[in-house]
Design a protein around this nucleic acid. Structure first.
Lengths: 140, 140
DNA sequence: TTTATAAATGAGACAATTTCTCATTTACAG
DNA sequence: CTGTAAATGAGAAATTGTCTCATTTATAAA
C-alpha cells in the first residue's frame, strides 16, 4: 500500500496553501494504493476537481518530493511514478510481466548509518527494489 | 562505475545479431562510467557510428533491460537512465543538488533470500537508493 | 468581516521525450 | 553465395514535461 496519511496537514504546517487543486491531488494519493504517474493523478484528480491542470499536478508532485513526502521511482516502463517516502515501500518487480509485489520489512538501517557517517550524508529515506521473475512467469 | 563487460558476447549468445549500431551502443556503455540517458547514448554513439538513430537506441536499451543486462533508474530529474544490472551499483542521492555517490557494498542478500522463498520470486538483481542531503547542501 | 498580498492556478504554447510505421538494408546460418 | 528473418534509419505521430502570464484565491492581519 502506498497510502500517505496527513498530507494536507503536513503541507499546511510547512506554510503552503490548501487549494482545491491540491486537495484533489492529495485525495487521489491517499485513496489509491497503486504507484501513480502524473497522468493518472491528473485524470483521477479531474474527477474530483475538473479544472485541475497538468501544470498543477507537476508542480504539486515536485513540491511533495522536495518535502520528502513522496518519492519518484521507476517500475518497468519509462513512466515516472510516485510512492510514499515515509515508511517502507519497497518492491519486487517482475521484469517479464511487470507484476509488482510490495513489502515493508527492510533490513538496511545499519547500512544506512554506516553510509551516512562515511559520506557525511544525511539520509532521509531509501528505496529498495528487487528485480526478477515472478511465480507465474517462471512457469512459462 | 557502471561498466558492463561482455555485452556483445551475451547478446550474440542470446541469438541477436551484432550490428554496427548495437556495437556502437555497447561501446558507449562499456566505456562510460556515468548513468547515461537515451540522448547521451545516442549522441556518443553517433560519434562512433554516425547513422545511429534514436529509435535504435530505444530498441536496444529495451532489449538490454529485458535480458537483465542493464536496469533503468531515476536519479534526481525526470530522465530515465541506466546502470549495469550485474553487480552492485547503488546510490546515495542528494535531493537538493542531485549529487550522486555510488557504493557497492550491500547487505541485502539475506533479505533477498527470504523474499525469494516467501513470494516464490526468482530474484535477478536489486537496486538500493538512499535519498537525503549531501555534506555541501547541509551547510546551506 | 473585510482587505491586501503573495502564492497558486489554468490555459495553452512550446519543447523534449518516446513510440510507431514502413520501406530498405544487413547479419549470418546454411 | 544466397535466402531469410531480423534489424535499421528516417521521420511522422503521440505522449510527456516545461514554461509564461494574466487571473484567481487562501490566508493573515486589520
Amino acid at each position: 500500500m502506498s497510502i500517505i496519511i496527513g498530507l494536507a496537514e503536513k503541507l499546511k504546517r510547512s506554510g503552503y496553501k490548501l487549494t482545491p487543486s491540491r486537495l484533489a491531488i492529495i485525495e487521489v494519493l491517499e485513496t489509491h494504493p497503486e504507484h501513480l504517474s502524473h497522468t493518472q493523478i491528473l485524470e483521477d484528480g479531474q474527477k474530483i476537481y475538473p479544472q485541475l491542470s497538468r501544470a498543477t499536478v507537476y508542480r504539486m508532485m515536485e513540491l511533495l518530493v522536495e518535502l520528502h513526502l513522496i518519492r519518484p521511482l521507476y517500475l518497468n516502463d519509462p513512466t515516472q511514478r510516485f510512492v510514499s517516502a515515509t515508511g517502507g515501500h519497497h518492491h519486487l518487480i517482475c521484469t517479464h510481466c511487470g507484476t509488482t509485489v510490495e513489502f515493508d520489512h527492510c533490513t538496511v538501517d545499519q547500512l544506512a548509518q554506516e553510509l551516512s557517517s562515511k559520506y557525511n550524508f544525511q539520509i532521509d529515506s531509501h528505496l529498495l527494489e528487487f528485480q526478477g521473475c515472478c511465480a507465474t512467469c517462471k512457469l512459462s
